[in-house]
């Protein structure tokens, strides 16, 4: 081989070096912002996949530390909140907001996806979530998975309550859970009252449909036409069809 051959080959190889794309850093690091939410200021961390972590505001250092321990990813300040975050916190609609749920087990992910389907102003028992995801006996594990929700408010785990009508625990405390539910116009007194009377399903004798008490369809039933049931099997035996919105059959 001649020297010039070697030089031209080496030169050609050296020219194969390229600049890394500038956006590549955001494939690795997450960014955080502090924004207002219905329960006060919250810290929110997002990756290139979407919002990954939301916690109430105790302080920047604590949030950053907790994020690092949980996700093992660098966290830097963001210039602005991710698209869709502010409207999602204000209205509860996540239309434009992406979530990064990569760190979750498939069970946790199933639980959170079931919780996402609960409409604003409605509630479902822990056992309903367990049935929805095909793990009817895993009620306690459902509670744990909801307590481990990385993005409360955005995934409305506050809408999952106890079957006895008590609102149960919450990642930000029971008081915050109550505040959130009342802000969605849930009548907690009525829900508690029904549960105390052992009423867990309400049916309409005009539509022939049976619902969970906080279902939007159930709230339209007038007192004269409402039939109360303690268990689904009784409602079904009486000829009522389970509602397709709140899927009370998941509790039969």
């Amino acid at each position: 081989m001649t020297g010039s051959d070697h030089d031209s080959l080496a030169g050609g190889l050296a020219a194969l070096a390229v600049d890394a794309p500038a956006g590549l850093l955001d494939r690795v690091v997450a960014r955080w912002v502090r924004v207002d939410a219905p329960i006060g200021a919250v810290y929110v961390a997002s990756t290139d996949h979407g919002v990954a972590y939301l916690r109430t505001g105790t302080g920047e250092e604590e949030f950053v530390g907790a994020f690092r321990r949980r996700f093992g990813r660098p966290l830097l300040p963001a210039d602005r909140p991710p698209a869709g975050l502010i409207p999602a916190l204000r209205t509860g609609r996540r239309a434009d907001l992406r979530l990064d749920l990569r760190g979750l087990s498939s069970f946790e992910s199933d639980v959170l996806h079931a919780a996402m389907t609960i409409p604003r102003g409605e509630m479902r028992p822990y056992s309903w979530v367990a049935r929805e995801i095909g793990r009817p006996r895993a009620v306690r594990a459902v509670g744990t998975a909801l307590g481990n929700n990385p993005v409360p408010l955005l995934i409305p785990c506050h809408r999952v309550i106890r079957a006895d009508g008590a609102i149960g625990q919450y990642v930000f405390g029971a008081r915050a859970k109550e505040t959130l539910l009342r802000a969605e116009d849930v009548n907690l007194e009525e829900v508690g009252d029904l549960a105390a009377r052992n009423v867990h399903f309400v049916a309409s004798d005009t539509t022939g449909v049976v619902c969970l008490p906080t279902c939007r369809d159930a709230r339209r039933i007038t007192t004269a036409h409402r039939r109360d049931f303690a268990v689904m099997s009784r409602a079904v035996a009486a000829g009522y069809r389970p509602c397709e919105h709140c899927r009370p059959a998941a509790l039969s």
Binding site: L16, A17, V18, D19, A20, P21, L24, L25, V28, V29, P74, L76
Partner: peptide
């Protein structure tokens, strides 16, 4: 880490 990334991203990416 940002300094690390900026200092080495070109050699690593290439």
């Amino acid at each position: 880490f940002v300094a690390l990334f900026d200092g080495y991203r070109t050699v690593v990416f290439s």
